[in-house]
Design a protein around this nucleic acid. Structure first.
Length: 468
DNA sequence: AGCTATGATTAGAC
DNA sequence: GTCTAATCATAGCT
């Protein structure tokens, strides 16, 4: 109502002077006339009145009148004036702010979707992100099962995103076309300029892009959830197979003096474990998992040696059998090769090692080195190392033994120190003797006798990094 | 459910 | 980068 009054006033008075109807419409005979005569004013007044009251009439009546007005010769002029007035009054300015600068949030979302491989080029989408996620979680990047699972899920998200996006775009286009047609249609009866239509299209696009942003946001959320689940899945603990643990333990206890496998050793262990694992169930074991395992093992062993006593004995005995076999082979070999070599005193036969308990093996091995079957009084560790050295030097050197001499020496020493611990503490204290403890557990202790480390390692062994 | 064992992660030192 | 030490979180057993 207020509006109507304004328009009426505008058309009837001041504004009209500015937009001179005669100028705007180039209509009837302005030649020679400076103004608009009363009759014409009356005419315009009538038209305006008809326009303003059209809504009060019945549909048919209005339709007829509309048609009449549409065909009126003054219509284009009035239309353009009304449009201009509409512009000026700012009716259509609402929501037509100047071209909005790129929304930072939208940009963030776009960047993220691009980085995650959801938007952007199709190929390779996701694998890079998965690799990145894997790398971020500790470097183990070859868990292909979870990896492909992640990729599959990401592809799914990507597909949904694209279908939805397409749907939105299609809907947006359809709606825009519809509105444009509608406005064009209405522009016949309402003061709607092409500029306004354009603006309306802009508004529609903005609305739809805000919906798109929601879509992008939820897609991002889905990707984040997927990613965190992927990482969580990696964090999820899965016990290694028995064989894999055995392999790792064997290495650990046979390198007790220096349980720091080199990179190559870790790789080899990982490979070995994976081979045995692949025969059973589970996934492959990576180098970083081997590192984790050794890290955990070292610290836990050191923290509670007593707890690991039994395990240590078991593995030591286990390796001792192998060692003894190797020793026997070496002795036999050296005897065969040099028949004149005097008997070194290690007359071992396989049958002698067909023993069941680790304890008896220990005893046997102890006897081996003391040369007596009675009680074994352990000399101090230094002496022990000396004897190990001499054993190493006398019996191993020169012989083409394909076994890991270092691990054998470690193992044998462990067995001996075990026995010593028992005899010294009368079986009550199952800990290592202080010296032995030093030698075995003070891994980073520089006082660890260097003689413990044998420079010889067989080709069949996993090389240990003695630089530690 | 409560417990222990164990693989993974983290912070900080080197 | 590797290492230790502490810690988290789950598997698996009772």
């Amino acid at each position: 109502m207020d509006e109507q009054a304004r328009i009426m006033q505008a058309l009837g008075g001041v504004s009209l002077a500015g937009h001179s109807i005669q100028g705007g419409m180039a209509l009837p005979p302005p030649h020679g006339h400076d103004g608009i005569d009363d009759g014409r004013k009356q005419d315009i007044g009538d038209i305006l009145h008809q326009i303003m009251t059209i809504t009060d009439q019945s549909l048919d009546e209005a339709q007829a009148k509309k048609h009449g007005l549409n065909c009126h010769r003054m219509k284009p002029a009035l239309f353009s004036v009304l449009c201009e007035i509409k512009e000026k009054t700012g009716l259509s300015i609402r929501g037509a702010q100047e071209e909005d600068p790129p929304d930072p949030q939208l940009m963030r979302l776009d960047n993220m979707l691009l980085a995650e491989g959801v938007s952007g080029p199709e190929k390779g989408g996701g694998s890079a992100a998965a690799a990145a996620a894997a790398a971020a979680s500790g470097g183990a990047s070859d868990n292909s099962i979870e990896h492909s699972d992640y990729r599959a899920k990401l592809t799914q998200i990507r597909q949904i995103y694209h279908t939805e996006l397409e749907k939105y775009e299609q809907a947006c286009n359809e709606f825009t076309t519809h509105v444009m047609n509608l406005l064009r249609e209405q522009s016949r009866t309402r003061p709607i300029s092409p500029k306004e239509i354009e603006r309306m299209v802009g508004i529609i696009h903005r609305k739809f892009s805000s919906i798109q942003m929601q879509l992008k946001q939820s897609t991002c959320e889905a990707v984040m959830i997927l990613r965190s689940r992927f990482l969580d899945a990696r964090r999820k603990r899965r016990n290694f197979s028995k064989q894999a643990t055995e392999i790792l333990n064997e290495y650990f206890y046979s390198h007790l003096s220096n349980p720091y496998p080199s990179e190559e050793a870790k790789e080899e262990l990982a490979k070995k474990c994976s081979i045995t694992v692949s025969q059973g169930v589970g996934s492959t074991i990576t180098v970083s998992q081997v590192s984790n395992w050794f890290g955990n093992k070292r610290i836990r062993y050191k923290k509670n040696i007593g707890k690991f006593q039994e395990e240590a004995n078991l593995y030591a005995a286990k390796t001792a059998v192998t060692a003894a076999h190797a020793v026997a082979a070496a002795v036999q070999n050296s005897q065969t090769n040099s028949p004149t070599t005097p008997n070194s005193g290690f007359q071992m036969k396989d049958e002698e090692f067909q023993l069941d308990s680790a304890e008896s093996k220990n005893t046997l091995l102890t006897n081996m080195f003391t040369g007596s079957s009675g009680s074994f009084n352990l000399p101090n560790s230094g002496d022990m190392f000396l004897s190990m050295q001499s054993l190493n030097g006398d019996s191993y050197q020169g012989a083409q033994v394909g076994a890991n001499v270092q691990s054998q020496v470690d193992t044998l020493r462990h067995v001996i120190s075990q026995t010593a611990g028992y005899s010294e503490a009368l079986g009550g204290n199952t800990m290592y003797s202080p010296h032995g403890l030093n030698a075995n557990v003070g891994w980073h202790d520089t006082t660890t006798p260097s003689a413990v480390i044998s420079p010889t390692e067989g080709p069949g062994s996993v090389h240990s990094d003695t630089s530690n």
